[in-house]
Design a protein around this nucleic acid. Structure first.
Ligand code: SF4
Ligand code: SF4
Lengths: 141, 141
DNA sequence: ATTAAATCGGACTTAATAAATCCGATTTTT
DNA sequence: AAAAATCGGATTTATTAAGTCCGATTTAAT
């Protein structure tokens, strides 16, 4: 089990945006967070389509958060980028997938379900605002 | 983020062992749980080295749990097979890895740390015995 | 003794897909 | 008109997990 680069980069990118509410170009973010430019471009596009950031095209364009940082959770970001946080057939909510034939007798299923819940709970409870304010940089507040 | 086939297969295999305390050959397990034989062989060897199952070689040999099922957790199995449940530099306990240069200023770190904790807590609290007894098959007990 | 049935260990191959790159088009500001 | 962005799609590369293969060894049964 491992975190995808997209989630990893993507989360860094949005926390970067959350620090200041203005438009940032992909270049700025990529430089600031040491993320490959072209790849980040794709990630930002995904986040745009997911409705988490807004883009402004053309010169002086760039990206900014679509909602206040307190209204965007870590879960929002990760599901937008990875689409399935724990991809085991039976646990996936994705109804398009056919169900597992062993579902009835499967004992290990419970592990994945519990794990899924723990992860969801954890990620849902963290907003971008939480992340930014925890930072010692703004230590006085 | 996704579960590796090794963890997935491995957990199934040990729950299979947990159902009855006798020696099972890889063939029996592979057939019972629909796992590729050769691959499962490797997985069982890993679990043996990790001290979670014992092997008996030769004819009529096979594998069985080394400890009572109530003393083996899901976490035991997954860490034996995947070695790092959430591989992000800063979160890994593995001291051999060099530390991330952005650690001081990194905001997203908190997400991975909290997630790690949630996962660990969840997996540590599930034993193989829990899994087996939840099963409706032994409903009368 | 011989054979059969298993694990063992290591090397190897294959397949999947994530990660990264590239390019031409479009939009917007200056 | 030029510059600086995003956009979208296609493509390439790299990684590594997943799966296979084989020869050696151990043990039980015939
Ligand atoms: S075998 Fe079990 S864990 Fe796997 S998909 Fe089926 S029900 Fe879920
Ligand atoms: S950048 Fe942050 S999350 Fe990533 S390894 Fe460094 S400290 Fe950890």
């Amino acid at each position: 089990m491992k975190i995808s680069a997209q989630s990893y980069y993507g989360l860094k990118a949005v926390t970067f945006l959350a620090k200041e509410s203005r438009v940032f170009s992909v270049k700025e973010i990529a430089d600031g967070e040491r993320i490959p430019y072209d790849y980040l471009e794709k990630i930002m596009q995904k986040l745009t389509r997911a409705g988490l950031v807004t883009s402004k095209r053309g010169s002086a364009g760039g990206y900014s958060l679509k909602r206040p940082s307190s209204k965007i959770t870590a879960k929002d970001i990760l599901t937008a980028l990875d689409e399935a946080i724990l991809p085991i057939l039976c646990v996936m909510s994705n109804k398009s997938r056919s169900y597992c034939i062993m579902e009835k007798t499967c004992l290990s299923k419970n592990v994945w379900q519990r794990m899924q819940k723990a992860i969801n709970y954890s990620l849902n409870s963290i907003t971008l605002a939480d992340l930014v304010y925890v930072n010692p940089k703004k230590s006085k507040r």
